[in-house]
Amino acid sequence: MYLPDFEYYAPDSIAEACQLLSQFGAKAKVLAGGTDMVVKMKNELLAPEVVVSVKNLEQLKKIEYVAGKGVCVGALCTHNDLVKSDVLKERYPSVANAARQMANNQVRNRGTVGGNISNAVPSADLPPIFIALNATAKLVGTKGERTVAMEDLFTGPGKTVMAQDELIAEVFIPDQKMTGSNYIKFGLRKSGALAVVGVAVAVQVENGVIKDARVALGAVAATPVRAKKTEEFLKGKNATDDVLAEAGVIASGECKPISDIRASAEYRTDLVRIFTKRALRKAVDEGHV
């Protein structure tokens, strides 16, 4: 299988990349890991006239802890960079474990954080855990940079608030009071399967009482969504099995899944109930796993 011809650019700076995206408009596409884009090009779902390879933007390949602020994840980190990151292992193993559940090893070695987010696939594995951890995305364009909350980034399947000339530069996970977080996913196989349902939670627990909670659901709506009623319900409650089970019931009422080749809407709704309960239990008992 061969790709159609395209003009190729490999800019050395973010500014140059944005300039190219602005200059060529809708004709241009950003190429990072290619695990999604090259497949789409082969399947004739995409035919960019201009490909802007971001392989040279080394500054976007770092994961760092900024003292007193939070963890900064460069958009060109691959999923396996997250899995192997000492910073994440120490602070948010939940993020590393979410990355580890994506696709297979070969894809995790190429597919990037920025690609997983900007493709805006509703079943993507990283957005829910980033939303649960209140992360933000730094977008850079020709008119400057802006910061967007991860939960506000997605507008529909394959759609985000990003402008044509904007790139995701980094994801920032702020220091927080949450004591535990967790992402669990149900796929039809253990590996190489899209999420049928993905549930990410973060909780702040003190003396057995849930002070704060964030719950984000993947693959059960047009975008990853927060289950805000579930979060409100949890606040101030004791983290008992009954309370977490009730939270699961509420969360299953907050999602709007579709039926497709992988699962029916009814099945997905019930999975949300179970997985929300399980993810909460893990986050309460085990911390940021």
């Binding site: 490999a10 890991g33 695990t35 396996n80 070969q106």
Partner: peptide
């Protein structure tokens, strides 16, 4: 292996 890491050669541009 690309720099030691296994990748699918069918999804990588040679120029990259």
């Amino acid at each position: 292996m690309l720099d030691g890491n296994p990748v699918n050669a069918c999804l990588v541009l040679a120029i990259d």
